[in-house]
């Protein structure tokens, strides 16, 4: 599975971002380069999970506000700064759906479904589509996020683990167990 990522950054960039963060801790305006760099990525991450362009913008902005507020508690653990931002955005989304009693939105596409079926060692998804959509819509939020990030956003396990605050191994184990369950349900019924 191709999971080339724009999310992971090289050490030079990590170092440059550490300096920006240090400056921004005492001068919030210094945070602007990081805002400009990550706005699009965070926006896409949020919009992927909903159908409302304006609400996606509000949640993205709120994620950056929270990030600025919490910047003095940010600890450089050698991970890309973006993983911290994605985690905040994910928490904001979760909070949004909880507060507004709204259903989450899972945006799927053919290529992602193909890869999902391939991972389950099944043929094309079309015969299972209805049941598959039904199963995906009933997943717990964290399980849904695992499927979404892996197959529809093409994220690596390392990225998924960082965003969901899991270990990489744990993310893999959870996903493969989940796929086993999904396969069992869709093949039995279909």
């Amino acid at each position: 599975m191709n999971t080339d990522s724009k999310y992971h950054v090289d050490t030079a960039r990590v170092s440059e971002e550490s300096e920006i963060i240090l400056r921004a801790k005492s001068n919030p305006a210094a945070f602007e380069p990081l805002y400009n760099r990550y706005f699009e990525g965070i926006y896409r991450f949020v919009y992927q999970r909903m159908d409302d362009i304006d609400t996606a913008k509000d949640i993205t902005q709120m994620a950056f506000i929270k990030a600025l507020e919490k910047l003095n508690t940010y600890e450089d653990r050698g991970l890309p700064f973006s993983s911290w931002l994605y985690r905040i955005a994910y928490n904001e989304l979760t909070q949004h759906f909880r507060n507004n009693s709204k259903n989450r939105c899972l945006n799927i596409d053919d290529a992602g479904l193909d890869e999902l079926m391939e991972e389950m060692q099944e043929d094309r998804y079309e015969p299972y589509l209805d049941k598959l959509v039904d199963v995906l819509s009933q997943l717990e939020p964290e399980n849904e996020a695992l499927i979404e990030m892996r197959f529809f956003e093409k994220r690596s396990f390392k990225e998924i683990a960082e965003i969901l605050d899991l270990t990489e191994t744990n993310a893999k184990v959870r996903l493969y167990r989940l796929l086993d369950k999904i396969k069992l349900v869709i093949t039995r019924v279909a």
């Binding site: 805002y35 902005q61 709120m62 945006n107």
Partner: peptide, 26 residues
């Protein structure tokens, strides 16, 4: 399914760092 993706230009037009700064300070 297969929703049309937004372009980078469309997304970047939504950027408003001043609003973030104001939001954080308020």
């Amino acid at each position: 399914m297969n929703r049309k993706p937004l372009s980078s230009e469309e997304i970047n037009r939504m950027q408003d760092f001043n609003a973030v700064l104001k939001g954080a300070s308020m």
